[in-house]
């Protein structure tokens, strides 16, 4: 009996020790887990912040892409519409010039154009060519320019003259087409301003 009691006591002791050890381990495990959890929280928070901040950056980038490309698209459409309008104004103006009356002040204009050309070329020995419509007007003012001759050739233009030195080395284009071409960028601005753009 006595040996049974000693055995039971030993077993109880072992059980108690084991229980203590297990409880100790569980407690330490719990503490470790708590510690790990506490340590993980700032990391998680920083990871969370990073994900949110990356997401916000990405959203911002996509928003910029969308607004940027739609702004550009809208602006391009506006530019094309404006250009259409400007071109229409131009073509109507050119039609008016083509059909304008060649009498009256027009001969004064031709005279001014010849004077300008002789001055720029630095010679009065010149050959003048023009379109079929203006030929008579040019001929009528030619007597005022000694050394100037009108060629029999004509070419297509809105009006005005093309002047060549008699030695053939220099040419000066003083047609209305050339003058409009040169001033077109400025005229475009004026027309665009009428449409309320670029004021």
């Amino acid at each position: 009996m006595a040996s049974h009691s000693a055995l039971e006591s030993t077993i109880d002791k072992i059980l108690s020790n084991t229980e203590q050890s297990i409880l100790e381990n569980i407690r330490s495990g719990l503490d470790d887990s708590q510690q790990n959890l506490d340590n993980a929280i700032p990391k998680l928070e920083s990871e969370y912040d990073k994900i949110i901040s990356d997401g916000e950056k990405e959203a911002d980038k996509i928003a910029k892409q969308i607004t940027g490309s739609s702004d550009i698209e809208a602006r391009n459409k506006q530019l094309m519409a404006l250009e259409d309008g400007v071109n229409k104004v131009f073509s109507q103006a050119l039609d008016q010039i083509t059909n304008s009356d060649r009498s009256g002040d027009y001969s004064n204009l031709i005279k001014t154009l010849i004077e300008e050309a002789t001055q720029i070329l630095g010679t009065s020995d010149i050959l003048i060519s023009t379109n079929a419509k203006d030929k008579d007007v040019v001929q009528s003012v030619l007597s005022q320019f000694s050394g100037a001759e009108l060629t029999s050739d004509t070419f297509d233009c809105l009006g005005g003259i093309r002047v060549k030195s008699k030695d053939g080395t220099m040419t000066f284009d003083n047609t209305l087409d050339a003058r409009i071409d040169r001033l077109k960028p400025l005229i475009r601005k004026e027309i665009a301003a009428k449409f309320g753009v670029g004021i």
């Binding site: 300008e116 720029i120 220099m170 040419t171 000066f172």
Partner: peptide
């Protein structure tokens, strides 16, 4: 910018 153009030379 003016309406006046330049002289064209043909002797190269």
């Amino acid at each position: 910018m003016t309406a006046e153009g330049g002289v064209q030379y043909s002797k190269i």
